[in-house]
Design a protein around this nucleic acid. Structure first.
Length: 285
DNA sequence: GCCCAGGAGTGTG
DNA sequence: CACACTCATGGG
C-alpha cells in the first residue's frame, strides 16, 4: 500500500538520521526505510508531500507514522518559545524540519541503555543484532524490535554474543523488572516523577532517563545531556558544571520545549565536529 | 595500535 | 556535593 501524508515542516534526513532513532536507513532517491512496530515503512518526500509505503493490508500505518513523527507538534509554537533564545534563534529556520520522534517505550528504554558509551554505528549494530535474533519477522529478513518476553528468553551469554558488552546484564535485568503494567503507569506520571523512577532502573542514569522520557514517553521538557550537549553548552553558552546544574539551566532557558532545543543543539554540534562525526555516513548502499 | 564512544555504577574525599 | 576509576567492545 502507498499513500500520502502532509506533515510540515519535516526534513526526513534531519529527523531520522540525527541519532535519536537507530533503525532508519536512507536509500537512493532520498528514501528512508525502517521497521516501525509491526510494519516495514518506506518514506520519501517531495515538496510538502510525504509518501508512505507499507506492505499490502498494513493496519494503522497512517496513525503509526503520524505518531512516530509527532505530526501534531506545532513547530511554529516551539519556535515561538525557542526563538526568544538569542543563540538558538538564528538557526531555527535551518532546523525547522528536525522533529522529535516518538519511539515505543520499551524499545526506547533498551535502545538508550545500549547507547551508553558507544558510537552510533555500533548502537545500530547492537539493536539490529538483538532484533535479528529475538524479534518477530516483519517481512523478508526485516525483524521487529523484540518484545520484553522475546528478549527475556535470551540468556546473559546470548546477549553478550550480540556484542552488547557490559550492557548485556542491564538488558537482562530490565527484561525481568519491566512489565506492561509498569509502562502503563509511567505513561501517566509527570516528567519529574517519571524521571525519578526511571533512574532507579539498572543501566539508567540521568542521561538515559531523560532520553527515555523525551523519545519514549514524549516529555518535551526533558533535556538529555550527553558529551555533545555538554560541548555545545560550553561552546555556545559558556556553561559548565554538573548534570544537575546544566539541567536546571536548560529548564529555565528552554522551558516546555527543552527537548527540541536539545535536539537542535545536538544536531548542530555534530555538524561542527571535526570529521562531521559520521552522522550521515551510511556504511554502504 | 590508539582513541573514543548520545554513561552508569561504585567507591572515596 | 565532587571526582576517579572501572566496565566490554567495536568503529574511525
Amino acid at each position: 500500500m502507498r499513500f500520502d501524508l502532509e506533515i510540515e515542516p519535516l526534513d526526513l534526513g534531519q529527523t531520522l538520521g540525527c541519532g535519536q532513532t537507530f533503525r532508519w536507513r536512507n536509500g537512493p532517491g532520498g528514501t528512508w526505510s525502517g521497521p516501525l512496530n509491526d510494519q516495514f515503512i518506506v518514506l520519501s518526500k517531495s515538496g510538502r508531500r510525504l509518501s508512505v509505503e507499507a506492505r499490502p493490508g498494513g493496519r494503522h500505518v497512517e496513525a503509526l507514522v503520524r505518531n512516530h513523527l509527532r505530526a501534531d507538534d506545532s513547530i511554529r509554537k516551539v519556535h515561538r518559545v525557542l526563538g526568544k533564545d538569542d543563540v538558538l534563534a538564528p538557526a531555527l529556520s535551518k532546523l525547522k524540519g528536525l522533529r522529535i520522534v516518538k519511539i515505543d517505550e520499551w524499545e526506547c528504554l533498551v535502545s538508550f541503555v545500549l547507547a551508553t558509551y558507544a558510537n552510533i554505528p555500533r548502537i545500530s549494530k547492537m539493536i539490529e543484532m538483538v532484533s535479528a535474533r529475538y524479534g518477530s519477522t516483519i517481512v523478508g529478513d526485516v525483524k521487529a524490535f523484540p518484545t520484553r518476553a522475546q528478549l527475556g528468553r535470551a540468556s546473559l551469554h546470548d546477549l553478550e554474543k550480540c556484542g552488547l558488552g557490559y550492557r548485556a546484564r542491564y538488558i537482562k535485568a530490565l527484561c525481568e523488572i519491566i512489565d506492561d503494567r509498569q509502562l502503563e503507569r509511567w505513561r501517566r506520571l509527570p516528567y519529574d516523577k517519571l524521571r525519578y523512577e526511571l533512574i532507579e532502573l539498572p543501566g539508567v542514569g540521568d542521561k538515559v532517563a531523560d532520553c527515555v522520557s523525551l523519545f519514549g514517553f514524549g516529555r518535551l521538557e526533558s533535556f538529555p545531556i550527553d558529551v555533545w550537549i555538554e560541548r555545545a553548552l560550553a561552546r555556545l553558552y559558556g556553561k559548565k558544571g554538573s548534570y544537575a546544574k546544566l539541567r536546571e539551566f536548560a529548564a529555565e532557558r528552554f522551558g516546555p520545549y527543552a527537548g527540541y532545543a536539545q535536539e537542535y543543539l545536538y544536531y548542530n554540534e555534530r555538524l561542527h565536529a571535526p570529521n562531521g562525526s559520521c552522522l550521515f555516513l551510511e556504511k554502504e548502499r
